[in-house]
Each structure stands twice: as structure tokens, then as C-alpha cells.
Design a protein around this nucleic acid. Structure first.
Lengths: 180, 180
DNA sequence: GCTAACCTTTACGTTAACGGCAAGGTGGGC
DNA sequence: GCCCACCTTGCCGTTAACGTAAAGGTTAGC
């Protein structure tokens, strides 16, 4: 299949897209080469191509995917295993994209895109769930904040604070110190 | 409960609050005893008291603190080190609570509560920052969703899809296969 | 006052997510 | 055609966050 001509106007083997080597990618995204290889080992992403000498070559699609992974890891706090679950869907999406191109049955195409939509919906749902839990924690913390402001108001008014039901907690007090 | 009286009508050593042993606490919060001891080792929480035989005894305050820790870990996805940073503040808060009780200078009391408020504010800010990053990811994902819906609409209309600028990515195509 | 269930500390094992090194191959600029 | 910076796989090391087993002490019920 190889069109040996490198100077042909349309060489199917000529890279139409810019490809990047591993260190370049790492520097661009703030990841080490080791991390990129590790992610590949885990099946999170396979670089778009390999060079003749087996160098990993990443394209823009890979970069975007890596940014997504990094976001899920750093921003959303997912484990790589959880990310793998979310990206297993992405892998299917890639395969479907191929199928999409090679079919012309509109029904099948419709089914594929519907499927992809469902996947993204699951991703969004997963992210939303995380965010709601976070929001609940924020509300809780703001509840504590309000409580403190009440105390401040009491102090401003020169009122003795409501008696705390907390016990000291400091190292000095020992419980059941009496009794043999 | 043995009301072992030493001398006073208000025995400072008598436990006025219910105390719980480690396994009970673990079961209640969904944490193992090992985890509780580990958190203590890290300085995340010191149980309210120890029994005569050195059993750890947790009070309700400890339980609440543990729920907070668990939320930061599971919901917010903070590392225990980061949680330690947020709770270092909490420790200072505990110490301040003691100082608060033992002083009667309104100015000092005011200062202490103000300090506590600032701490909670930092916690909230930290949580908010996490949530905003998460929200950004959600928006991004919903952008992809919208893109997919556009595709669906195109298919519905029987229109050929806009040409993808993605290249195949499937294993078959090798870049620079011709080469030298 | 005996026993079973629980607790203590100590210490080594495990999994996830990489870091880092060694031994050798690659690639493009001179 | 050479060179050096970059790449490869392989493998051992490390840190965080626990699990788990050992050897012994404690508590509460009977």
C-alpha cells in the first residue's frame, strides 16, 4: 500500500498532521515522559503513531485527551482506575468513529452518534455527582462560618457566649483518672 | 456507668459526654480501626481521651471531625497531606477554644473568633477553587455534548457530516512507513 | 476471677502512581 | 558518517494510604 514517493503532491503516508515526541508532549502538558508511558501501560491512551525506530508520536487529538485525563486527575480528583472507566467509553468512541466513517447506513450512523452522546452524558453525570458532593461540603463549611459570625455578634454586644457543650480536649484532662 | 465520686459535686473527671471505642467509631463512619490509628499517627485527629488501659476514646466532636476528614478525602478528593493543612488550622482552632474559655478579655476573645473565621474562610475558598475547576470540566464536557447533538441533527436532516479533521488513528496506518 | 471480645504497639506487606537508572537503539544537524 | 540528544524496554525504588498478622494487655459479663 505504500506510495513510496515522498515528493508526491498527495502522499497518503505523509503526515498531514503535526506529530510530537514524548518529551515535547510532557513539557507542554506538565507531565513526565514516565507518566505518559505509564498511562499508555494502563491503557489510558495509545499515541497516534510510532516512528520507524519505534518512537512514540502524539497528535493533537492525543494532547486533548491527555488534557482531559489530567483534568480528571487533578481537578476532579479521580483515580487512574476511575479515569480508565470513563475512557473505556472514549476508546469505544474512537472505534465507533472508524465505523462511522466506513459505513453509509444512516441508521447505523445515527446509532453510533447516539451511543457517543450517551457516553458523554455518563461522563457529565459522573462529574456532576462529584460536584454536588463538593457543594454540600461547602454549604456545611459555610454553616460553620455563620455559627462563628453569630459568636462574633455576641461578643460585639458584650454578651457572655452561650455555654459550649464541648469538653476541653487538651492533653491535661484524663478520663477515669480516679478508681484504681 | 460507675459514678465513682472523688470529692466534689462536680467531678471534672466524670465523663459527661458519651465516649466511643475505636471499632464502634469505625463502623459508624465506614472506616477501619487501622485507618483511625493512621490518621492519629498523621496528626489529623487525637481522640478526646484514653481509658485507664490506654484505649482510645472518641467523643462526638471527634466523630464530626472524622466525617469532615472523610468528606475532604472522598468527596473533595484531597490528599491526607492537604487535609492536614486544612486541619492544622483546626488544631489551632481547638487550642484557641481553650484560650477562649480561660480568658475574659473581650478583645482577645474577639481576636480568637476572628481568627477562627478566617480559617473557615480559607477552607471554603479551597473548596470553592476545587469546585470551580470541576465546573469548568463539566462545561467542557457539555460542549462536546452539544457538538454531538449537532451531528445528530445533521444526520436527521440527511446531510453528509462535515468532514472530520481527525485522521484514522486505528492500528493499520503507519506514519513515515516509506522513509529513507 | 475467668474468659471472650476488644484493645494496644510493632512491624512487615500491598497497591497506586509514579521516579530513576541501565543498556542499548534512533535521528537529524554538521 | 558522526555525534549527541532523545528515545526504547526493563527493572528496581519510593511515597501515600492503608492491610494484616503477632504478641500481649484491658474490659465487661458471668
Amino acid at each position: 500500500m505504500s506510495h513510496l514517493d515522498t515528493s508526491a503532491p498527495f502522499d497518503p503516508d505523509a503526515p498531514a498532521v503535526p506529530l510530537h515526541r514524548i518529551q515535547e508532549v510532557g513539557a507542554a502538558l506538565g507531565l513526565t515522559t514516565r507518566t505518559l508511558r505509564y498511562y499508555e501501560e494502563l491503557g489510558l491512551l495509545k499515541p497516534a503513531a510510532r516512528s520507524e525506530g519505534d518512537y512514540r508520536l502524539y497528535d493533537e487529538d492525543d494532547l486533548e485527551r491527555l488534557r482531559f485525563i489530567k483534568g480528571l486527575r487533578d481537578d476532579a480528583g479521580f483515580s487512574l482506575a476511575e479515569i480508565g472507566q470513563l475512557l473505556e467509553d472514549e476508546d469505544a468512541r474512537d472505534r465507533n468513529r472508524d465505523r462511522f466513517r466506513t459505513t453509509d447506513d444512516p441508521a447505523e450512523r445515527r446509532a453510533i452518534v447516539d451511543d457517543a452522546l450517551a457516553r458523554v452524558d455518563r461522563q457529565v453525570a459522573s462529574l456532576r455527582s462529584k460536584m454536588e458532593r463538593l457543594a454540600a461540603m461547602i454549604e456545611e463549611a459555610e454553616g460553620r462560618r455563620g455559627h462563628l459570625q453569630t459568636h462574633i455578634a455576641e461578643l460585639e454586644a458584650g454578651v457572655a457566649p452561650a455555654p459550649h457543650d464541648h469538653r476541653p480536649k487538651g492533653g491535661a484532662s484524663r478520663i477515669t483518672r480516679a478508681a484504681r
